[in-house]
Design a protein around this nucleic acid. Sequence first.
RNA 1: GCCGGUGUGGCGAAAUGGCAGACGCACAGGACUUAAAAUCCUGGGACUAUAAAAAGUCGUGCGGGUUCAAGUCCCGCCACCGGCACCA
Length: 980
Amino acid sequence: MSSERKQYPFRLIEPKWQKIWDDQQTFRAWNPGAAIPPEHPFAQRHPGRRAEDLPKSYILDMFPYPSGAGLHVGHPEGYTATDILARYKRALGFNVLHPMGWDAFGLPAEQYAISTGQHPRKTTEQNIATFKRQIKSLGFSYDWSREIDTTDPKYFRWTQWIFLRLYHSWFNPQTNKAEPIETLLYPQELQIGPGSSPDSALEHKRLAYRDSKRLAYVAEMPVWWCEELGTVLANEEVIDGKSERGGYPVVRRAMRQWMLRITSYAERLLQDLDSIDWSHSLKEMQRNWIGRSEGAEVKFSVISDQWSVVSKQGSVTETGSLKTDCSITVFTTRPDTLFGATYMVLAPEHKLVAQITAAEWPADTPDAWKGDDKSAARNPQSAVAAYRAYAASKSDLERTDLAKEKTGVFIGAFARNPVNGERIPIWIADYVLATYGTGAIMAVPAHDTRDLEFARRFNLPIRVVVQAPAGKDSVGYVDDGESVNSGLITGLRTPEAKRTITAWLEEKGLGHKTINYKLRDWLFSRQRYWGEPFPIVWKTDAGGQTYHQALPESALPLLPPELTDYKPTSAGDPPLARAKEWVQLPDGSSRETNTMPQWAGSCWYYLRYLDPTNDQAISASETERYWMGARARSKFKVQGSKSEGSAVASNLAPETLNLELNESTTPGVDLYVGGAEHAVLHLLYARFWHKVLYDLGCVSTPEPFFKLVNQGLILGEDSQKMSKARGNVVNPDDMVREFGADALRLYEMFMGPLEDVKPWSTKGVEGVYRFLGRVWRLFVDEQSEAEFEQSQTVHPHAGAELLDRIRLDGAVQDIEPTTPQLKALHACMKKVTEDLDRMRFNTAISALMVFVNEAMTWPRKPRPILRDFLMLLHPFAPHLAEELFAKLAEAPISNLKSQIPLSYQPWPKYDPALLVEDTLELPVQVNGKLRGRILIAANAGVPQIEAAALNNEKVKPFIDGKTINKIIVVPKKLVNIVAA
RNA sequence: GCCGGUGUGGCGAAAUGGCAGACGCACAGGACUUAAAAUCCUGGGACUAUAAAAAGUCGUGCGGGUUCAAGUCCCGCCACCGGCACCA
């Protein structure tokens, strides 16, 4: 291709316009109250108006991690879609915020630093430079004055600030929101009586209580430690119990970790999905991740005849008989099956296991119940210890491997079923997770697949308590049915049975209704260098107890120390621990050495774009309320929900703002586009932080992203996922060099619907490139272009000024358009406008092609028509459109009155009257099959149409000799004759 | 297993319940050219039939249904893609 004649001189055109946009700051977005220079296109388009007088549109891309590999063709897909809409919205008269930045903390730069000693900042800067060059070469209309970088201390100062807000807050279940920790209410025994001064013991307890309630709190949590690599690994970096890199063994190690209390927000995160316009599948993913389930907690009392306390080493330290008041609480979604509970299972890690395990096997305990490790089967305690060691050695992945057979050990103890007093055995098994519910279950083998599998293996009783519908086996039946053999609920349908038994349990104090979530609190610390340090120090009190304390806001940003070695210490401390002078403070306290995860910076970046240089706040309140649509009360339809959502977005007084309310003003980011890989984590974390900031009055909307769209993955030409290994990676730089940025943009949008997965085709790029060439030839004079090319050969290093030698085609004239020409234009306007509103870029482009195909046949081309066409083209192919628009503007023409740049010209409005046809061609069907066509006046009446249809020569043979039962005339669509 | 999505020419794809395949790619034929490239024009779902045309039959993963009319709506399957996965 490179040897071929170029379709048009995009290599001069594209850099030319990119420079003009840069110099002019064309796409700078103005905040409320900003002084807008009168020469800026915004001021020319909207003379005398302030930024806040216009409706806003916040169009956001998921910002990239600037990797060393550079941009991928997947990136420009979403970026082009948002850029098209940003340009379209600008043309519609919106004040558009369309920013870009860098999610630049992360592992690759750190690992590169470990192996080369090069500071991650250096690598990061280089990668950002590459990404920025590549993104700029595509001509996106970003406001680069708002560029942010999560690794910039001016940025992460605020990431740390938000962490402090989390640290200084608790979740008040009464108000269902976050509040400053000062409002925390202490339980009776921790309250300070009036006038009395607290002693240090009480003060210590109060501190511990307060710390346990913070939204950011500390807990011992297991992490993966890889001895060989000398580092801690993330879950995703551990494959089958080995490190992803190098395949070295990893072990679970308990470490002190920072956690964020996202679980407090589970219900709101779930509920508020109904108020935002995200795809059905994405909402479902979030719902599944949150995993709400309603059920009951039920208490089972332990009736062990012998009990004992076992030390960590496995030896018995204490024994006795019949420990009373010891009970196990289980969570179940099926309290109606309580009568079918024939055994119980605790997670191996359950706290009560040590306490209730019997010293000796009860008489008649089958050998199979004593565990697979025969050497440990001599008594319950050694069997339990062996099983717990076995379970602990397995990775999460192995533990959840469904294919394997269920394992477990009877602990020699029994519990009493609260509904029927039955004595049932207690087991430990790793199919019960310590982290969900209460870490203990009642097993109902007849109506739970897992319990059934387990019961069959160990020969435990299976009792049917729910009658399956006729034709289905009740054993293993897990759906709703009718309760049987179940005392007071026998005969009730499942929902009723649940209610009844739960009420009964509550009355007896044996249980209560409850809601459980799969969502876990967020493990927020990483043992890494290249991340935000925690603004926390550790101190030791007089009693030798350590406790944490937040740094004051004035200490922010807290910079990471300079290091030469980025590996964790041999003791397993994070790399920051190597900087002893940084860690140890003069007052004897020491700094937290963990860092925040990469998610931290991306949790709130969309708020920083609003006011990126503000050093008093994340963003000024007025600015935040303008861009986030604090006053929006737009009614909107939410996909998949019957009710019409009403987003009353603000908890602030709207009267104080002087905003123009617009129908389409939405609360939060108007459009957020990015990959589906962030469907759960990033989008859930960001929603969580946003809600906390909302509770604390820092932001004015409960949700950050109103409308969200996932662009589909772009596959290689072989329809396989693009990867270096497969050699099917397409580099955007190559495409821009060969075909230009406009062609690349246009192709990415023409491939198919934005959200679909679709394979790349370089031939397809050539196709749209040819289309752009046809657009070019529609406008320019061939002779002058040939001269231009000659002069280019003579002056190979000449710049864009050579483009001035190209003249408009003589057929382009300032003449009255003909009716067919107007029709072609307005049909195109209608289609492109409607398709842009629905984000159907591929069909909008096809409408542009249809127009050009027709316009190519016109002997004379009216300038006003071509001018409007360029408006339609410009969001898709902005460089070419600008260049041709400039050529058109060289001579004054009727509808080019002002000097407003193309990027700020108003969007053309189509005239429906022009699209009305006088004569229509109607298809005529006989019994639903197409048989002929009639030409008929558009205003013809039904009898006239019927007559024409019946008299059509093509139709006649199919109705001759038949009875005509009915003629259906669909106005302007078709005629169907029903005959027999 | 559960949840979500998608199945339409050789390929990417279009089609408020109303002419299936717009637009593009690839392909074929033609014009221009010494020739090629580029460009321009023409063709095209499959099958039957025909010298050609006209024409007919079938056709949107499979099987049913609703309807004058179904790619589109309903019921039951199948395949593929994505997510979750012992969550009680």
